[in-house]
C-alpha cells in the first residue's frame, strides 16, 4: 500500500517536467495571442486529434507496423551479423571498421538515396527501418560478445569448450546488457526512420500526414500527427526501458 503510494508520487515527480513543458506551450500561445492557425495550443491539437480519430489511428497503425516490423528484422539481422563477425576474425576485421564508419554517418540523411535506388514503395520504407535498426544492434552486440568477464575465456578454453558452447554459455549471455543498449538506441530510431521515410515518399502513415499538412500549412493537423508519432515513439522507448530493466534485474 505504502509502496504503491510512493511509486505514484515518484511517477508524479517524473512527469511533472513534461506537464510543465505542455503548460508552457499553452501559456506561450495564449500570451502571444496567436490564432490557432498559426500556432495551435496543446488543447486545440488534442481536439483536432479527437475530431478525426480515424485518420490518425489508421496512419498511426501503419507507422507502428512499419517501425515494429523493421525493428524486429533489423534486430535479428544485426544480432546475426554480429555473431558471424564474432566467430570469424576476417569478418570481424572487415565489418568492425564499417560499423564504426556508419556510426559516424547521419544515416537518416541516406534515406533519400535508398528511396531513389529501391523506388517509392512500402518495401523501401521497410528496408530503411531495417537498415537503421541494424547498425546499433550490430555494433553493440559485437561489443558485448567481446566484453567477457575477466578470465572467463581462459576458463572455457581450459575446459575444452567448443566455439558453439563458448557462444551459447559465455559470449551470448555476457553480451546481453550491451545488446539491450543497442536495442534501446535502435527503438526510437526505428520510429523516426519510419516517419521520415513516409514523409519523403509515403502514400500513408503519419509521415505522409505530416508532409501533407506541411505543404497545405495546416498546423493543427501537423501537430496532431506529431502527437500521435510521439505517443508511438515514447511507447517504444518505455517498452525498451522496461525490457532492459526486466532482463537485467538479476545482474
Amino acid at each position: 500500500m505504502l509502496t504503491g503510494l510512493r511509486t505514484a508520487k515518484l511517477l508524479l515527480v517524473q512527469i511533472s517536467g513534461i506537464v510543465g513543458l505542455i503548460v508552457l506551450w499553452q501559456f506561450w500561445v495564449a500570451a502571444r495571442g496567436l490564432n490557432t492557425i498559426v500556432l495551435p495550443g496543446p488543447m486545440s491539437v488534442v481536439l483536432q486529434l479527437l475530431n478525426e480519430p480515424a485518420v490518425y489511428f489508421w496512419n498511426g497503425l501503419h507507422t507502428l507496423a512499419l517501425a515494429l516490423a523493421g525493428l524486429a528484422l533489423g534486430t535479428l539481422l544485426g544480432t546475426t551479423v554480429a555473431v558471424v563477425a564474432w566467430s570469424s576474425r576476417l569478418f570481424e576485421g572487415i565489418l568492425t571498421p564499417l560499423g564504426l564508419i556508419f556510426s559516424s554517418v547521419p544515416i537518416v540523411a541516406l534515406i533519400p538515396v535508398i528511396a531513389r535506388i529501391l523506388g517509392y514503395d512500402v518495401r523501401t520504407e521497410l528496408a530503411i527501418v531495417i537498415l537503421i535498426s541494424f547498425f546499433p544492434l550490430f555494433v553493440f552486440t559485437l561489443k558485448g560478445l567481446k566484453a567477457l568477464p575477466p578470465g572467463a575465456s581462459d576458463l572455457f578454453q581450459t575446459l575444452g569448450a567448443t566455439k558453439r558452447q563458448h557462444l551459447a554459455w559465455l559470449a551470448l549471455p555476457a553480451s546481453l546488457p550491451s545488446w539491450l543498449t543497442g536495442f534501446r538506441i535502435a527503438a526510437p530510431h526505428a520510429v523516426l526512420a519510419a516517419i521520415v521515410a513516409e514523409f519523403l515518399m509515403g502514400t500513408s502513415g503519419l509521415g505522409h500526414v505530416l508532409e501533407g499538412a506541411r505543404s497545405d500549412l495546416q498546423m493543427q493537423r501537423a501537430l496532431a500527427a506529431s502527437l500521435s508519432a510521439t505517443v508511438i515513439s515514447v511507447t517504444f522507448f518505455l517498452l525498451s526501458a522496461v525490457l532492459e530493466q526486466r532482463l537485467l534485474r538479476n545482474r
Partner: peptide, 14 residues
C-alpha cells in the same frame, strides 16, 4: 531524467 528522455524519444521530424 524523465523529461529529457521523453523529449528525446519524440522523433525530430515530429
Amino acid at each position: 531524467d524523465t523529461t529529457s528522455a521523453v523529449v528525446h524519444a519524440i522523433p525530430a521530424i515530429a
